[in-house]
Amino acid sequence: MKMDSLILKTTARLLLPNLLLFSLFIFIRGHNEPGGGFIAGLVASAAYALYSIAFDAEQARHVLGIETRLLIGIGLVLALLSGFFSMFGGQAFLVGLWIDLPLPSPFNKVGTPLLFDMGVFLAVVGVTLTFIFALEEVK
């Protein structure tokens, strides 16, 4: 399914980077304000979804630059990895570890929950785009 509309194409092309930036913003502020990995992931996928509707799935895949299933895998790996750090220290699985950085809030605290959230973000993007691209590519 695709729509041949110049307006749509232009909009999509313009929106893509902006939406991605916006999703990054949502992601970062998520720990303190409404937002977080899920929502950010959904926004990012929406950007590519729009692009794929405006152009087609193949071009959207090209712009994405990575196989969506791989993205799922990487997201899951990050989430899982974030749980290992504490195990090396003899603590339970998935315990949050934090370090302080000399940066302004919200960047002053970096910890494994953020890595976990990052995994969530990537996995959501990967899955959503897998859905959408696969459905669009159905003959």
Binding site: E67, R69, G73, L80, G83, A92, F93, L94
Partner: peptide, 22 residues
């Protein structure tokens, strides 16, 4: 601490690696 979550972690890790090695 280590042993208990292993039955979840092992297949998850295996599954993910298999996914990456698609």
């Amino acid at each position: 601490n280590i042993l208990l979550p292993l039955p979840i972690i092992i297949p998850l890790l295996t599954g993910i690696v298999a996914l990456l090695a698609y």
